[in-house]
Write a protein that binds this DNA or RNA. Sequence first.
DNA 1: AGCACA
Length: 286
Amino acid sequence: MAGMSHQPYDPYYLAVAPPMQDYGAGFAGGEKGLINTLFVSGLPDDVKAREIHNLFRRRPGFDSCQLKYTGRGNQVVAFATFFNHQSAIAALHALNGVKFDPQSGSSLHIELARSNSRRKRKPGSGPYVVIDNRSNEASDAREPSSNDDGDSESEDPSKDDNHESGNEDDSETAKSGETTGADGTAAAENPSEKPVDGNVNPCSTLFIANLGPNCTEEELTQALSQYAGFKMVKIRGRSGMPVAFADFEEIEQASKAMEELQGSQLASSDRGGMNIEYARSKMRKH
DNA sequence: AGCACA
């Protein structure tokens, strides 16, 4: 692999503006019960609210965003609010996993927020807002004591904050109701439960297709390792269109990664977003 | 649509 010729990733590769323009004015609430706010982590600690705004501003249906200093170390997170759930999902898939800072190699981790931003955009307050929860920072880079997990990204970054609301995941549970729980016989027998995953049988190994020709295992590792239970990824079929197999500890963890990374682009992607399915067989242990 | 490694 001589010459890593990757063009700088353009987060605005989706230069299209969909026909949906009839949002109406002053309607940031969206449909009731649906989340229209994204939670963004994986940001460099020197990120600016303007950068967040520039990241999202061209996304269809975007309303406003806010940058939040969590007060834990220099950790920064952001919330992006859209006019409806569908626009939020589209932006999530488009931007999740993209390299935000090529220098540090950090990539964005985007998920649905646990609750919508209740903070309404007041006229005159501008398109973005900064919330600073840092209290004792000044010269202190990390917490004083007793907590050693300051540097690592937790599997669930959204637990770091409560997003100024006590609203729990009412819509989240409805979304992932595929695997059910108690009896386990549900999905296979019920004709109304159609698996949309492309493969009928869940597997803790994922099959990833539609990768760019220059995709590397390192790049995939970077995108996948932010998900709990990730073990390893292998690229096969180097000629033409490469595919990859990503192994996880548990099926549920693989499912989570698949859901969130589905359709998202890597820096090396040139044919659109990744197509992820359950692999037909589990990666061989070794 | 494309699913390997043992």
